[in-house]
Design a protein around this nucleic acid. Sequence first.
DNA 1: TTGTAGGCGTTATCAG
DNA 2: CTGATAACGCCTACAA
Lengths: 336, 336
Amino acid sequence: MSSRTRTHGATVKITDVAAAAGVAPMTVSRVLNTPERVSEETAARVRAAIERLGYVPNLIAGGLSSRRSRMIAAIVPTIASPMFYAPVQPFTDTLAQSGYHVMLALSGYEEGSEDGLIRAVLSRRPDGLLLTGAAHSPAVRRLLRDAGVPVVEIWDATETPTDMLVGFDHAELGAAVADFFAAAGHTHFAVLAASDPRASARRAGFVARLARHGGTLVAERTLPAPSGIEDGRAALRDIAPLLTRRTALFGSSDLVAYGAIVEARARGIAVPAQLAVCGFGDFEISRASELPFTTVSIDGAAMGRMAAEHLLARIAGRPAPPRILMPARIIARAST
Amino acid sequence: MSSRTRTHGATVKITDVAAAAGVAPMTVSRVLNTPERVSEETAARVRAAIERLGYVPNLIAGGLSSRRSRMIAAIVPTIASPMFYAPVQPFTDTLAQSGYHVMLALSGYEEGSEDGLIRAVLSRRPDGLLLTGAAHSPAVRRLLRDAGVPVVEIWDATETPTDMLVGFDHAELGAAVADFFAAAGHTHFAVLAASDPRASARRAGFVARLARHGGTLVAERTLPAPSGIEDGRAALRDIAPLLTRRTALFGSSDLVAYGAIVEARARGIAVPAQLAVCGFGDFEISRASELPFTTVSIDGAAMGRMAAEHLLARIAGRPAPPRILMPARIIARAST
DNA sequence: TTGTAGGCGTTATCAG
DNA sequence: CTGATAACGCCTACAA
C-alpha cells in the first residue's frame, strides 16, 4: 500500500522511523532493544511508525556499534547424518529464545581445512562458537583464544577443552560394547568403523577391551566418513568369508550396522544366531527396521540444548561448567 | 574472564595492520579484497603483518561500509530429512567458492511463523535468500520485494515465483506415479502423505489421476510432517484391514514407504504380490534395504547447486532464469 | 599503485 | 524518560 516511497532501493532506516514518530533515533533503538525504558505512549507511536514504514532494523550496523553480533556459529562436519543434525535443532531453538541466530558451517571431514573455516567464521564476530570435536591445531586454539569468544565443543571428551565441553568418551563407550558382547559369551569379534576421529576412538576402545577379554578379532575394516548403509553392506560382503564362527560385530553407526545386517541376511548368515550386531546412535532405523537391532543410545538433542545453555551463560557472564560428560547406554534389541 | 578483553581494543584492526606494514588502511583492504590492484611487493609486506598480528578482518564493519554482507540466508523446514539436507551441502559449497557464507534458518512446519523468521533473517542484510516452497503471505512477498534481495525458491513450482525458482510440479509427479501403477494393471490404490504442502500436492495429483483411470482409492491417510519410518508403519497398521485386494500404495517419502513395507511384511502381506509400494526421494534406504523399493528420484543436490548459481548470477548482475523445472523419474525396483 | 576524506546505520555514553 | 554526540571498523569515491 505505502510502498511507493521505497521503489528507489532506498531502505528505511532508524532515522526515518524517528522522524515519522517525532522522536530521536535513540528512542527508536530503545523501543526495539530495551522497551522497558520507554514510556508506553512513545513506544506505541514508534511501533506504529515502524509498522507503517516497514522498517527492518539493520543488525550489521547494530552489531558494529554494540560489538555484539547476536549470532552464534556452529561448525559441524555434515548434516547428512542423524548423528550431527540431532543436536542442531535444539541448539538453534534454545538460542533463538534468547534472540540469537545460528550460522551453520559445514566442515566436511578433511583435515586442515578447519583453520580457514574458523577464520572465516570469526570474521563475522560471532558471540559464541560451537565446535564438533575437540582436537584442534595449536593455530586454531590460539585463534580462538585471541578472539575471546566463548566456545563449546561437543561429541568429544578431551581432558583439556578449549573452553567448555559437552561430550562423551568414545573409547570408553567402545569398551562398554566389548563388555556387553563378552558378557553374552562371545569370543569372536569384528568391527566396522568410519574413518572419522570419533568412530576411530570407539573402535580403538572396543578392540583394546577385547584383548583384555581374550577375544579374537576376526575382522576390522575402515569405512569412509560419513558412512552409510551401502558401506556397511559392502564391508560385510568383504568380511563374510571370515565369519566362520559365531561373531559379534560392532558398527560405528546404525547405518553401518543396518547395512551389515541386511547383507548378512541376504547371504544366509543368521542374525543374531551366527552374527550378533551392535550399532551406534539409536537412529530411528535401529528400532523400526525389520529386525530391530541393538545400539548405543546417546542424547544428541540434550547435547545441543546444553551446549546452547552454556554458551548463553558464558555470554551473560554467568558461570558455566567446563566439562560435561553425557551418559550413553546400550539398548539391547533382537540383533544380539 | 577474557571474554571482555576482545572488545577493549585488544582486537587487531585494519589500522594496526596498516601501521605495522607502513601503508594506509586502504591498502590493507585492497590486499584482502582486490589483490590484483596492489604491487606484489607491498602485498607481501602487508600479508606478513597480517600473519604476525593474527588479524581477522571484521566482516560486520566491512558489510556496513560496502553494503554487502557476503552472506546468503537459507530457510529450510528441517534438516532432519534427506529431502531437505540434500540441496544444502551443494548450495553451501557452490557459494563458498565465491566467498559467500550461508546462514541456515530452520522454519519448522508451522504456519504463520514465516513472517517473523524472514524479518529476522533480513535484519542481517543477506545478499541473497533461499526459500523452501513458494507459498508465502502477501506480507512476506512485500517484505522481500522491499528488501530488494535476490530470492530463489526451491522444491515448489508455482507459476508466479517471487523472484527465481528451481523446483518441480508435485501434482504432476503424483499423477505420474498413478499412471505408472495403472500401466502395471493396478485397480486399487492407497496413499500415505505427510501434511506438508508438497506432500499434499503429490497426493492430490495422485488421487486426481486415479479418478481418470477409474481406480478405486482404498485408503488415504495424512501423516505428521516430517514423517518417518514409524509413521509409515503405524499408518499401514491402520489401513491393513482395508487391503483385501491387491493394492498399489504411494508414500510421500521413502521413509514412509519403507515403514509401510516393513509393517506389511511383518503382517504377512506380500510385497509386491499383495501390496505394491512406491516411495519418494530415492533415499539410500530405497536401494539398500532388504527389499529395494520403487521410488521417485529427484536430484536435490543439483537443485541446491542451481539455486546457488542463479543467486550468484543475480548478485553479479547477470541474467538468471526465473523458473526452472527439474526432471523427476520413477525408478522401478522390487516393490512393484 | 597508493592515499585521503567521509560515511555506512546503529548504539554506548553522558546530559538534561 | 528522552536526546545529542561520538564512535564502531571498514570501504566507496575520488585524488595524487
